[in-house]
Design a protein around this nucleic acid. Structure first.
Length: 191
DNA sequence: GGCCCGATACTCT
DNA sequence: GAGTATCGGGCCC
């Protein structure tokens, strides 16, 4: 299966988010392969988007968001959780797609161990990073590099009828119009 | 399934 | 010092 190239990520963030649905996230750990199908993502677009971390401009934390498309932006939140994003658009413009859920397929035994006794392996952004053992060491990694141990495999396109768009999750007191923008993309399971 | 709440440490004000 | 792109446990049905 071909890996998604940088040209995939270097497009409008909403397009990248929509088209990431259904593709397969893969992490290589020695001879093992972990990951699954991407089922939910969210777009964060530019300094004007007041829900986007880049609203505060280019800082030590947000620097990677300004890098060229296809880099990982991995950040820490709530005192204990790591979140995984893919940088999008052109070099110098801060935007990214947050991974919110995948359907676990490969390496389930390893992921189950890392997720303790919990049945929900990868149905939340911080659960994915726990299951895949992703932390700050992965910040700034280029997922389009030929030797990258984390990448996305191109699979099939998801039918438009299966895509659900909603407001983004967990934005709290983010002002309008950003709070209501339907920049969360999710796959409908039925059908 | 749902709601409430505490954990916990980093970032920017 | 306040706020945070969350999770899991306890509880209630």
């Amino acid at each position: 299966m071909p890996r998604l190239p940088q040209s995939f990520f270097a497009r409008p963030t909403l397009t990248v988010a929509r088209e990431l649905l259904g593709q397969r996230l893969v992490k290589i750990e020695g001879s093992k392969r972990l990951g699954g199908i991407i089922t939910e993502v969210e777009a964060y677009i530019g300094e004007k988007d007041l829900a986007c971390h880049a609203r505060a401009g280019r800082t030590a934390r947000t620097d990677v968001m300004y890098w060229s498309a296809g880099h990982l932006y991995v950040y820490f939140t709530y005192g204990m959780h790591w979140m995984i994003c893919f940088v999008t658009e052109r070099d110098g413009f801060p935007a990214a797609v947050l991974l919110r859920a995948i359907e676990a397929e490969d390496g389930i035994t390893v992921m189950r161990t890392r997720r303790k006794k919990h049945d929900h392996l990868t149905d939340g952004p911080a659960k994915i990073s726990q299951a895949l053992a992703i932390d700050k060491r992965w910040n700034g990694v280029d997922v389009c590099a030929a030797d990258s141990k984390l990448f996305i495999e191109s699979t099939h396109n998801v039918a438009a009828s299966r895509v659900i768009r909603s407001p983004r999750i967990g934005l709290g007191s983010t002002p309008e119009p950003w709070l209501s923008k339907r920049w969360n993309f999710k796959m409908n399971n039925d059908e």
